[in-house]
Design a binder for these strands. Structure first.
Lengths: 168, 168
DNA sequence: TATTGTTATACTCTATAACTATA
DNA sequence: TATAGTTATAGAGTATAACAATA
């Protein structure tokens, strides 16, 4: 019972548990702050933030879905909510008539700007209070390769469609 | 426009983004593996794992809810599902007649044991492939204080029973 | 009176499959 | 035929508030 065939590195296990717990607690706190301050969910905030960080303020729907690990229909749903509030706009892509380009509006930018301070306050207070700046850098250095590694493996939102009816 | 009143440490910001993205991607992958291999959600798996790790194989409901950052009603719901499948049992606490003690069953332990290898495979493959053992230890060393710090702050989910040392 | 856990409810979110249109 | 996005649908999960029982 306590000696299963799979010998796990306890160090890894500890890191994994800590990561899960920390991100879970952080996520909860963020979710609440965003909700209270701007009526935003974390998902919608992420969408807005991604758009805002983009040079063009725009993204292709599928790309965005991939970036946030979402099904396309899920993104359509969230985009609909954001659009209804005037925070984003959708339009057919210029280069590809099949595509849809979602763009952040001025109101969207303003909202992000308005929430950011409180958002960062939560993040700073919860995540970085016990960490030095150097620690933060170390954390990034550790997680950045992991992120790239995870992104390299393609759990794409589009792949689900491909693997499905493709008996051909 | 590029000089808002809130000056954020870009290093911290990077660490935060990386953490969010990594944990999100990891969570998705885990969720899928647990579902495919055992029909478990991440939340239910966490409940079982917590119980299994406990010396007694048991926990008080509220304690468990706190541990997993859940509302008590949410835990009641999940516990109901687990109990229906014979993976846990609930009984009135011996010392406190108001309380309920939830315990993992043999079937529950067996299921956890059965899923663990695949689970760890996912975690190892996604999270630790780009990390050395030393990196993993560093990661833990960074996140452990954060976890404790977060735990020290009053959890929002437990607001209804927040009278710890406050007021009165 | 405060706390524990459950219930009832209402709501949000997510994924799947079918559908339209473009490539 | 394959891809991009939407829609319809259906199910799961969560929190809140009211409630019963115990401290």
């Amino acid at each position: 019972m306590s000696d299963p065939p799979h010998s796990v590195d306890p160090v890894q296990l500890g890191a994994y548990f800590a990561l899960v717990e920390v991100s879970s607690l952080l996520r909860h706190a963020i979710e609440q702050q965003l909700h209270d301050d701007a009526g935003l969910t974390f998902v919608r905030f992420q969408i807005l933030r991604r758009l805002q960080l983009s040079t063009t303020g725009s993204h292709r729907m599928t790309d965005l879905a991939d970036a946030i690990v979402f099904s396309r229909s899920g993104l359509t749903y969230q985009a609909g909510l954001l659009e209804k509030d005037g925070l984003v706009v959708r339009a057919r892509s210029a280069d590809d008539e099949r595509g849809v380009t979602i763009s952040i509006t001025d109101a969207g930018r303003a909202l992000v700007e308005a929430v950011l301070p409180g958002h960062e306050e939560v993040v700073t207070g919860m995540l970085f209070e016990p960490l030095s700046r150097e620690d933060a850098r170390t954390l990034t250095d550790l997680l950045e390769p992991v992120r790239e590694h995870m992104r390299a493996a393609p759990p794409r939102s589009a792949s689900s469609r491909r693997r499905k009816g493709t008996s051909t």
